[in-house]
């Protein structure tokens, strides 16, 4: 058996050169909260491990050109401590749900996007917020919307040689708010059974624009355009009444064991985040 190589690049350029060299034979380790366990048990056995937490230029959270940009190696702890990220209530609510403090010290939003577990809390919030993901490779970059990022269970658009450089969340004005909530078997440190996040723009008690994202209702996190279209132009009260019993066609539940449960609660959960976002708006918005 060939021995796995380890690299700890200090710059993005160095990391991209390594990923270009080893392509699909390389595994990127960011916070490592998911992948290290698999590496340790040889469930994943790459030719090279590229550990990217030592790249300072990817660690920053900044605002520019209408976006708050979270660097690829910024941790959940960094997100919680960032006043810029604090503008997005849905993001903060989702991050507070992730693991425990020692997990949030190392875990990263970019890493969880790469892992693409359909129940990942932050991914659902980022999807509702309309975040864009910047994928860098040697000699170029491309930008992918979060809603298009996840292509199958634990599979993303990320190609061999690419790395998640940053996550850009569009900054919104005072008429827009967001929220996130999940249902799990335990109150803390549990994987979502169903999660929902919303970004709501309202004026005079009427829904002007809405984005709804759901987690753990299929092989990937999903946006819910069917419901989004149906709600625009309606009063918030009418929206709340409509979502309560909704079972959107975007759900792709296959396991009969939890299908009934998830279908029963998904509308209730969407109602909760919609109400929370609206209450934040009514309280002045962020």
């Amino acid at each position: 058996m060939k021995e796995t190589l380890y690299f700890g690049p200090k710059t993005l350029a160095e990391a991209l050169a390594l990923l270009d060299k080893y392509r699909d034979k390389a595994v990127i380790v960011n916070g490592g909260t998911d992948i290290v366990e698999k590496l340790a048990h040889r469930a994943v056995d790459p030719e090279a491990i590229v550990y990217i937490q030592g790249i300072p230029e990817l660690k920053t959270i900044k605002e520019e050109a209408g976006f708050v940009s979270i660097g690829g190696t910024a941790t959940y702890k960094d997100v919680l401590a960032s006043p810029l990220c604090g503008k997005f209530a849905g993001l903060i609510q989702s991050v507070r749900e992730i693991g425990s403090a020692p997990i949030r010290v190392v875990g990263t939003p970019a890493g969880n996007i790469g892992t693409a577990v359909p129940a990942a809390d932050c991914n659902v919030a980022l999807m509702a917020l309309g975040a864009r993901i910047v994928l860098a490779k040697l000699g170029g970059e491309r930008v992918v919307e979060t809603k298009d990022m996840f292509v199958a269970y634990c599979k993303t658009q990320l190609e061999p040689g690419e790395l998640i450089k940053e996550i850009r969340i569009p900054v919104t004005d005072a008429g827009t708010a967001s929220a996130f909530a999940k249902l799990a078997k335990r109150k803390a440190q549990d994987i979502a059974q169903v999660s929902a996040s919303v970004r709501l723009t309202a004026e005079g008690g009427v829904c002007k624009d809405i984005a709804i994202a759901l987690g753990a209702v299929g092989p990937t996190a999903v946006r819910v355009p069917s419901l989004e279209k149906a709600l625009v132009g309606k009063s918030i009260d009418a929206c709340l009444a409509e979502v309560k019993k909704a079972v959107p066609p975007e759900l792709r539940l296959r396991n009969p064991r939890n299908k009934q449960y998830k279908e029963a609660v998904v509308g209730v959960l969407i109602g909760r985040v919609l109400k929370a976002a609206y209450e934040e708006l009514a309280g002045g918005g962020k």
């Binding site: 490592g32 909260t33 290290v36 340790a40 020692p102 997990i103 010290v105 190392v106």
Partner: peptide
Amino acid sequence: AVRSCILLTAS
């Protein structure tokens, strides 16, 4: 405080 069971020693 971190988890040493999901931390690569090299890191």
